[in-house]
Amino acid sequence: MQQALPDVAVVGAGIVGLSTAYALLERGVEVRVYEQGAPGNGQSGGESRIFRHAHGDPRLVRDTQDSRAVYDEWSERLGVPLISGDGAVAIGPSVDDSLPLLQEAGVAAHRLDSAQLAERLPALASYDGPAMVDERGGSIHTRAMVGALVEALGDRLVTDEVLSVRPVGGEVEVRSGGRTDRYRAAVVCAGRGTDHLARTVGLSIPVEHAAHVRLTFAVRGAAPARLSTLQDSSGVFGETGVYAAASADHTRFAVGLSGHTPVREDGSVLAPGDLEDLARRAARYVSRALPGLDPDPVEVRHCWVTRLPWGEDGIGVWEREGILFPVGHNLFKQAPGLGRKLAAAAAGEPLPDLLRPEARLGAPPA
């Protein structure tokens, strides 16, 4: 069946762009998605991510609950389990701050003793400090999700680089390498390139750019029946701000530190040696904290970070005459819920006030 002409352009086929495009199709709105590289291979790249409800901003906890419900719905419709049922584990002093917020919001989260922790995370060394599990958290199966969304979009996804977007006569003009088209609306989900395209319409987005590295390690021996995700703020094993997520078959565990290295305005990395240092520190952490993993990494993933100044999990959407510019960090867990909100706004509904920059969604309470 021939597709109708697209009403909306989506720039970028990372997880937010793909989710927005799929949500537009849910609404019966035709869409064209521009991506200059492989879909899901930029900031969304890698095999797994953490789904967690824990955030310092209670509004973001509720927003994540909404996104989890969409994950369930899409898993059933796409025929792909998008999040594992293994739970999300946190250890360290952050537990005492996060757990009350989660329980107040109705999230199924509770403390773990050392034996329960060992059952959830058999790769972890002995630990008897504060620990909790978010039962509805788990590892997002990122490659499976990207693949399912790309298949659903079909030839609505075009390989082309977008040079500019601008409002013209009540429409949005998109100029790319091989075409110039006009749409009723556009959503720019271009990762590090989002604020560059925003400047073409006079917007200045206060995004902080950085580079990051994440390593994947093989699980020793047979794959465990359960392998929860991990966030470690304890410092017991020499690092804080550690995160880790499992592959779908539990044979690999991706581990990263919260550190980044800044980049210049032109995108060049200020100190490339910082990435090597982060990788070494992650490998040393695995040797100390995760003896159930082989300490020699089997995969490395470098990616950009686009962080807003009000928080590590901050989200904001800038708007200019039919063009939406969503910006944030750690957006994979929010992508289905956020995609539906962006699709609704692109289809003509008001953008939720919570997503406007002045709401500072994701900022920790004062």
Results as ranks from 00 to 15, higher is better:
2 Q>I: 12
4 A>Y: 07
6 P>G: 03
11 V>Y: 04
18 L>C: 01
26 E>I: 01
27 R>M: 11
29 V>G: 01
32 R>E: 14
34 Y>L: 03
40 G>V: 06
44 S>M: 07
45 G>P: 09
46 G>T: 03
48 S>N: 09
51 F>E: 03
57 D>M: 09
59 R>E: 09
61 V>M: 04
63 D>Y: 13
64 T>C: 07
64 T>D: 06
65 Q>V: 06
65 Q>C: 08
66 D>Q: 11
68 R>T: 02
69 A>I: 03
76 E>S: 09
78 L>S: 06
79 G>I: 02
81 P>K: 03
84 S>Q: 05
84 S>K: 04
84 S>L: 03
87 G>K: 09
94 S>F: 10
95 V>P: 12
100 P>T: 04
103 Q>K: 07
107 V>G: 00
111 R>A: 13
113 D>S: 05
116 Q>L: 05
117 L>W: 06
125 A>N: 05
126 S>D: 14
127 Y>I: 02
132 M>N: 01
134 D>E: 15
138 G>D: 00
138 G>Q: 00
145 M>Y: 14
149 L>S: 01
154 G>T: 01
154 G>C: 02
156 R>C: 11
160 D>Y: 10
164 S>L: 14
164 S>I: 12
167 P>W: 10
168 V>R: 15
168 V>E: 15
169 G>S: 11
169 G>E: 13
172 V>N: 04
177 G>I: 03
177 G>A: 07
181 D>Y: 09
181 D>S: 14
184 R>C: 12
187 V>G: 07
195 D>H: 10
197 L>A: 04
197 L>I: 08
199 R>Y: 09
201 V>A: 09
205 I>D: 05
207 V>P: 09
208 E>R: 08
213 V>A: 11
214 R>A: 14
215 L>P: 04
215 L>V: 04
218 A>N: 05
218 A>M: 04
219 V>Q: 01
220 R>I: 05
221 G>M: 03
223 A>Y: 11
228 S>C: 11
229 T>A: 01
232 D>M: 06
234 S>L: 08
234 S>I: 02
235 G>P: 01
236 V>S: 12
238 G>D: 04
239 E>L: 07
240 T>S: 12
245 A>S: 15
246 A>G: 08
250 H>P: 09
251 T>A: 14
258 S>K: 14
259 G>N: 15
262 P>A: 00
269 V>Y: 13
272 P>S: 01
273 G>E: 15
274 D>K: 13
274 D>L: 11
277 D>A: 15
278 L>A: 06
279 A>H: 15
280 R>G: 15
289 A>F: 08
290 L>M: 13
294 D>N: 13
295 P>Y: 05
297 P>A: 09
298 V>K: 11
299 E>K: 13
300 V>Y: 12
303 C>M: 11
304 W>A: 15
306 T>Q: 12
307 R>S: 12
310 W>N: 04
312 E>K: 10
320 R>M: 00
325 F>S: 02
327 V>F: 02
330 N>S: 15
331 L>Q: 09
333 K>W: 09
335 A>V: 03
335 A>R: 05
338 L>K: 08
341 K>Y: 07
341 K>E: 14
341 K>G: 08
342 L>S: 00
342 L>P: 02
345 A>H: 04
346 A>H: 06
347 A>E: 01
348 G>F: 06
352 P>I: 00
356 R>M: 06
361 L>D: 03
362 G>I: 00
364 P>Y: 05
364 P>D: 06
